[in-house]
Computed example of a mutant assay.
Amino acid sequence: MLFTHDTEIALQAAAALVNTATAPDSVDTPEALDRFVEEWGWTGQRRHDDKELQQVRRLRPRLRDIWVGTEQEIVDGVNALLVDARALPQLVRHDQYDWHLHATSSEAPLAERMAVEAAMALVDVVRAGEISRLRTCAAQDCDDVLIDLSRNRSKRYCDGGCGNRVAAAAYRARQQEGTGS
């Protein structure tokens, strides 16, 4: 394992959140946000309203800009997220999770908790010198972000099926070449 379990989950959740903005937007209603929150296991206070939805949706471009930035842009973006939330790291244990870091209270707004969790995970990426693991999908028609947690740093495609689609297109092209058509 490259990072701690909670860091890996936070990075994957941050990438998934950024990727919800890809057309069509998959977090476009409070109910869709509820499904996303449940899928990624977010805990803490929720409002389940349009204000909460808009706050989360405004977070996505900030995270995308951090994800695709230079090292200094990543550091500046992470620091801004932590300052904006007045983050105060503390060890916590809850539900099925053993000791891990939270830097906001469970009563903080959802978007703030999401921002800080992503920022704390990105701190680990920067400190480990692993920024090159923050990537965008290699498919020409996809702008999704991904975190490469593979041992050999070989992940090139997002989890949206792009790898299979690109491989199938390459196979069809080779077959077409072989038939001379």
Rank of each mutant, 00 (worst) to 15 (best):
D6K: 04
I9K: 05
I9E: 11
L17Q: 00
N19W: 06
N19G: 12
T22R: 11
A23K: 09
T29I: 12
A32S: 09
L33I: 06
F36D: 07
V37C: 12
V37N: 00
E38R: 13
W40G: 11
W40D: 14
G44T: 05
Q45W: 11
E52H: 09
L53Y: 10
Q55Y: 13
V56G: 15
L59Y: 02
R60I: 00
P61E: 01
P61L: 01
R62Y: 04
W67M: 03
W67F: 07
V68K: 12
T70Q: 12
T70Y: 04
E71L: 14
I74A: 07
V75W: 08
D76N: 13
G77P: 14
A80W: 15
A80H: 12
A85R: 13
A85M: 04
L88Y: 13
V92S: 10
R93E: 14
Y97M: 11
A103S: 14
T104N: 13
S105T: 06
A108F: 15
A118K: 13
M120P: 06
M120F: 10
A121M: 06
L122P: 04
V125F: 04
R127Y: 12
R127C: 13
R133P: 08
R133M: 04
L134G: 02
L134H: 00
R135S: 06
R135A: 02
T136L: 02
C137M: 01
Q140K: 15
D141F: 02
C142Y: 01
V145N: 07
L146V: 03
L146W: 03
